[in-house]
Design a protein around this nucleic acid. Sequence first.
DNA 1: TTGTACTGTAATTTTAAATATTACAGATTG
DNA 2: CAATCTGTAATATTTAAAATTACAGTACAA
Lengths: 136, 136
Amino acid sequence: MIRSKFSVSVHILSLMAGQPDEWLSSEYIASSLNSNPALVRKELSVLREAGLIESKEGKNGGSRLGKATKDIRMSDIFLLVKNGHVFGFAPNEPNPKCAVGARINGALDELFGEIDNSIFQKLQSITLAEFTKKYF
Amino acid sequence: MIRSKFSVSVHILSLMAGQPDEWLSSEYIASSLNSNPALVRKELSVLREAGLIESKEGKNGGSRLGKATKDIRMSDIFLLVKNGHVFGFAPNEPNPKCAVGARINGALDELFGEIDNSIFQKLQSITLAEFTKKYF
DNA sequence: TTGTACTGTAATTTTAAATATTACAGATTG
DNA sequence: CAATCTGTAATATTTAAAATTACAGTACAA
């Protein structure tokens, strides 16, 4: 998974959950994240494509939630930002002439799938509504 | 968690599991990993410190398992290489003047702890002996 | 109908993290 | 005592992540 995308997405969705009737600008979101608008927009486009948010272009535009907070699960966000397995393989292709080298990545791939699934199960049990209760 | 340390450690331990009576040199291990000896030695020192392996210096030296494969759990390796949470926080400190910014990392920290725990539970159920059965 | 304030996207630069390399003192064996 | 290994640190390189810049396109509002 890419380093911090999950945190960034949860942060964005939390801001929207707190002001469901406002169109939040990328500038505003960036200031809460202490980041910059272009990077936020990139992340917004991922969330939008998945239907979690909707955006409005032009003056007074911005983004807001596309679903009720109780209908957004933390696992939805996880699946969006996860790219390959959560755990990473070794940087180089192992030596195929070695008995272990030839097969380990297959075995790890299987294990990593199970790990991803454990995380998914956990996150599926938590909605954005429940999560944001912690600070609203 | 640091990118690929888990995979590298599992690979190393698997090699040793396959040749329990040999002292494997860092050179040999590196060739299976398609990596280099110095990096392998660094990882070996982590495993050694945890008692998972033992090493012998000098000529004909090397490393081998310090425990039976059935007594090494994948969670032991996980705890060694895990550094902070598996999931990462956003790169910058969020804006503390913002209601969400001020509290989100606390909420995420709690959630991330639960995720780490889900992974731990899963990995605790698998021994190195079971894992290596997949390719021996 | 035009200025302003947004989005969307791509290209580029910068920074930070991971990985690789080099080097060498110390240990052990034959 | 020569050869072969470890242990460790310092440095260099590579790669990935994040930040910045830029600008065309859209919508509102005066």
